[in-house]
């Protein structure tokens, strides 16, 4: 299935991309997504980030579905 991934701030700058579509298996966990992304962008291994699925922070065990919007979020700096 195709998933939509958004990148923000420092992460978007480091990988030179703010949004892309990725092809993944039907039942894919966040852990697997992370592995896939680190393979594609080695620099991610050294960076700190959280992942949101459909605008909620999730842990590595979360399984994503076709409609999920995945966001890779660097440390927050509001205010």
């Amino acid at each position: 299935m195709t998933i939509n991934i958004l990148y923000f701030g420092l992460i978007a700058e480091a990988i030179q991309c703010t949004q892309e579509k990725l092809e993944v298996g039907k039942t894919t966990s966040i852990k697997e997504i992370k592995k896939l992304l680190i393979n594609k962008y080695n620099v991610l291994e050294k960076l700190s980030y959280q992942i949101a699925v459909d605008q909620k922070l999730v842990n590595d065990h979360q399984i994503i579905s076709k409609t999920s919007e995945i966001a890779i979020l660097p440390p927050f700096a509001g205010g």
Binding site: F8, G9, L10, A71, P74, P75, F76, G78, G79
Partner: peptide, 27 residues
């Protein structure tokens, strides 16, 4: 309110210097 905003809102900040270089701010 302020403490939760700082901790939980997905807002990102680029600190820009006089020479236009930058670093990313972390709360």
């Amino acid at each position: 309110l302020v403490e939760r905003i700082k901790k939980e809102a997905p807002v990102f900040g680029k600190e820009i210097f006089e020479d236009q270089s930058h670093v990313w701010k972390v709360n």
